[in-house]
Design a protein around this nucleic acid. Structure first.
Length: 442
RNA sequence: GGGUAGGUGGCCGAGUGGUUAAAGGCGACAGACUGUAAAUCUGUUCUCUCCGGAGUACGGCGGUUCGAAUCCGCCCCUGCCCA
């Protein structure tokens, strides 16, 4: 079984000097503004408050978030406290960062509903059970009843010109794309979040730089010590596009290991290096070695094993390094060519991947039960079957795909769009290479 | 408040009375080729279909017309200029 780091081990880094801590924290960071302030805060030996604001409009945490969360885990292991702010109030504005359109606003109720699953997911990376190390807050707590007077105080901190200097606003403005005034309020709201919690370090991706810096101004206006803006790189999807749930480039941290494995194997070659850098703790030398010795395919395999293996754990190990790779039972020398891992989850994920790659049908797949009312004399039209199974959006699409040899039934390529299928036993439906559903009669 | 230009399929964008389910591009999907990569090539891309067709669709509502994305009226929304 895979070695699972015991919670009592957390805090083992607490004995580090400020220099050592800074050296560790800097790894992987894009920018720390200002780094001297972080050093001073670390030297002060007080427990630092490290904040991350999460937008509860989309309920899933993906491996892009994990880049930031893993860094925060380091802070926790150094003895500091993470405060997760669920932006239930700010979600009504919608973060304009990187956006080219105004976001549709959400109600408090809608956003609250999403927040709960967030915490569960974040718990895979952060230590959430220890109140000294973790706290969850909703920003409606202080923003909802913030008076207009305070809003004026906040908004007087920045000028319109400064706002429009932001790349996303600048672009929208010059292209004539609408910007609502309330979107200007977002950075202030996020910045104000740092006041009631007396934030020392605010974490964010590169797209958050502006917002993080506003937090400093806001804290100063409220007589607090300014926070450090800790900026981590943004992980793009495996195809170089923004990671998006509607595309297949999105890897959720609670997805099945086999899915994580599959998606990591699909990462386009030019982004492989970045994934190693952001999602693992291999040294640059080790990454180079893996890439050279394993080639693109072998390197993909090492990455997929490491990350899928780590994410399969209840609590993701704090270091995804060579030692962890070996703890999964793989020999480092082989760089991905062997398949002799001893960690069952990874083995299964890998086996499933290769089974499908060689045209096989996996054992594990989503199951759909068909209502008996859909059957006519025990049979159902093939197109309707695929649509009911959720593999096609419409019967027409199913017919088209059949004409294009894109659908299979029990492994056999379908050719007749008018075919009727008897459902006296479970049947395996397949779309393309890797989408399967098993339909079982009720 | 005044003037002006606009609102078309997931996105961009053509289309000013019928031959328009709406050019073209992007994206997406399937196939070939591959490493379940990329690139390339081929096909598809509103819904239903007894494959003959039928239904719905061009911001909203109403009207003109045999017929409207296209003309008219009102409303909503957005850009730009002026105040």
């Amino acid at each position: 079984m895979v070695h699972l780091e015991h919670p009592t081990q957390i805090g083992i880094l607490g004995g580090m000097t400020a220099e050592e801590a800074l050296r560790l924290l800097r790894i992987g960071a894009v920018e720390i503004i200002p780094q001297e302030d972080l050093f001073k805060k670390l030297q002060s030996e007080k427990k630092l408050t490290v904040k991350l604001g999460l937008d509860p409009t989309r309920p899933d945490i993906h491996i892009g978030h994990a880049v930031v969360l893993r860094k925060m885990r380091q802070f926790q292991e150094l003895g500091h406290k993470v405060v997760l702010i669920i932006g239930d109030f700010t979600a009504m504005i919608g973060d304009p960062s990187g956006r080219s359109k105004t976001r549709p606003p959400l109600t408090l109720e809608e956003t609250r509903a999403n927040a709960k699953s967030y915490v569960e997911q974040v718990g895979k990376i952060l230590i959430t059970s220890d109140k000294e190390r973790f706290e969850l807050r909703y920003n409606s707590e202080w923003l909802e009843n913030l008076g207009f007077k305070e809003v004026i105080k906040l908004t007087s901190l920045l000028t319109v010109a400064q706002m429009l200097e932001r790349e996303d606003f600048k672009k929208r403005y010059s292209e004539g794309v609408p910007i609502s005034i309330h979107e200007f309020l977002y950075p202030f709201a996020q910045g104000y979040d740092s006041v009631p919690i007396a934030c020392d370090v605010e974490m964010g991706g590169t797209d958050q730089k502006f917002n993080l810096l506003v937090g400093r101004e806001v804290q100063e206006a409220y007589g607090l010590e300014k926070q450090v803006a800790f900026i981590m790189p943004l992980l793009v999807g495996g195809d170089g596009q923004k990671m998006s749930k509607s595309l297949d480039n999105y890897i959720g941290i609670t997805e099945e290991p086999s899915e994580v494995f599959r998606k990591l194997m699909k990462i386009e070659d030019p982004y492989l290096q970045t994934y190693f850098e952001l999602c693992t703790d291999l040294t640059p030398e080790e990454i180079k070695e893996v890439m050279e010795k394993g080639g693109p395919v072998g390197a993909h395999r090492v990455l997929a094993r490491l990350v899928a293996g780590a994410y399969a754990q209840e609590l993701i190990p704090s270091r995804l390094d060579k030692a962890f790779y070996q703890s999964l039972g793989y020999s480092w020398d082989a760089h991905g060519h062997d398949q002799e891992g001893t960690a069952p989850v990874v083995q299964q994920a890998e086996a499933r991947y290769y089974e499908i790659a060689h045209g096989g049908i996996p054992n594990e797949m989503p199951e759909v039960t068909l209502h008996p009312g859909e059957l006519h004399e025990g049979k159902i039209a093939i197109a309707r079957l695929f649509t009911l199974a959720g593999l096609t959006a419409s019967n027409g699409e199913a017919r088209r795909l059949i004409e294009q040899k894109g659908l299979r039934l029990d492994g056999e390529v379908l050719f007749d769009p008018k075919m009727e299928v008897a459902l006296d036993r479970p049947r395996v439906l397949q779309r393309g290479k890797d989408r399967f559903v098993r339909v079982v009669p009720d």
